[in-house]
């Protein structure tokens, strides 16, 4: 049991950090520009594929640097020549633009790299078990992923709180109009933030690609959950997104570890489980099956009772 707890915690934190890498960019984009970027997970996928291709041509370490830069440039380009045009038509138009973009990116990825998962491997340098506990090994690469994401979190925090551009971004988060009035080039800041956000997603892609599977549907799977993280954490709040990521990572991982159904709970209270009716399935469902539903339940509940999210200060 102890091993299950330890490994579930590790896996949960890792998944949470991965979510955070994606959500950190999205939360900045969403809170500053109001853009519900449905293509954000697609940039994560692009990162994974670029990482794969570059590590084939060169090596993983170069890919880790170059792929996010490339994806960041693409992201900045999308903002400059796509979103900025659409911006004047309102948020729904921007959202639909990213909707279409997600389609296009997925199909292009399928055309170039095929529909099957690609053979993206862990670099040999990190291809060994980091430690062994109760006979289960934990791969070094996962420790590396954890390290990278924590490092990025720290860097991001430093940049946002200590640097000048960070301060402008923070100001733009809460008072976008005021920042523009002060004479800052808000479109340029937007482009920078969008590019960097995409770059961050791409870093997540490059390091998640070998550990998970690099395939065209990888964007789909993560898409909606990112919005949960961003909104749950609260608009404009990086710490909020951080907490929400970890929370959702841990909840989803631990839910899997628990084999317990509502019916079991009733049985332990000495009540018979209802077997009739359309809802009878509800009693058979285990916590593990409910796991994927929990984040959405959390989203609805927090928005109903605290529309600003966990640590946010504004609603939209």
């Amino acid at each position: 049991m102890l091993e299950l707890v330890i490994f579930s915690t590790l896996n949960g934190v890792l998944y949470g950090m991965l979510l955070f890498l994606l959500a950190s960019g999205l939360t900045l984009i969403f809170s500053m520009m109001g853009v519900l970027n449905f293509a954000h997970a697609s940039f994560y996928m692009l990162g994974a594929y670029f990482g794969f291709q570059l590590s084939q041509w060169l090596n993983f370490w170069t890919a880790l640097i170059v792929a996010p830069v490339l994806v960041g440039l693409i992201g900045a380009g999308v903002e400059r020549w796509g979103l900025r045009t659409v911006h004047k038509w309102g948020h729904v138009a921007e959202l639909l633009f990213t909707f279409g973009l997600a389609f296009v990116i997925e199909e292009l990825v399928q055309m170039v790299w095929g529909k099957l998962p690609v053979d993206y491997r862990v670099p040999p340098l990190l291809d060994f078990p980091a430690f062994e506990l109760f006979g289960t090994t934990y791969p070094a690469f996962r420790m590396f992923m954890l390290l990278i994401s924590v490092a990025i979190f720290l860097v991001l925090l430093m940049v946002l709180t200590r640097s000048r551009i960070g301060l402008i971004i923070q100001a733009a988060l809460s008072h976008p109009n005021m920042v523009a009035m002060l004479g800052h080039n808000v479109p340029k800041v937007f482009m920078l933030v969008f590019g960097c956000g995409c770059g961050l997603a791409a870093i997540a892609g490059v390091i998640a690609g070998p550990a998970l599977v690099t395939q065209p549907s990888m964007a789909h799977v993560l898409g909606p959950i990112l919005f949960v993280v961003v909104v749950f954490g609260g608009l404009g709040s990086l710490p909020g997104a951080f907490i929400a990521s970890l929370l959702i990572g841990l909840i989803q991982t631990f839910a899997i570890a628990i084999n317990y159904s509502l019916g079991d709970a009733l049985a332990s209270l000495g009540m018979a489980r209802p077997l009739q009716g359309v809802l009878s399935d509800l009693w058979q469902v285990t916590v593990a099956q409910i796991g994927p539903v929990v984040p959405y339940l959390m989203l609805v509940l927090i928005l109903v009772f605290r529309p600003t999210g966990l640590m946010g200060t504004r609603e939209s």
Binding site: V278, L282, L303
Partner: peptide, 27 residues
Amino acid sequence: RAGTVFAMISLGLGELIASLSLILRGF
């Protein structure tokens, strides 16, 4: 609420019911 909060609640409810639809097999 209107605006983003409404949009996000609708997203959450949508995903919630969609996930439930695979769990509640009877219906």
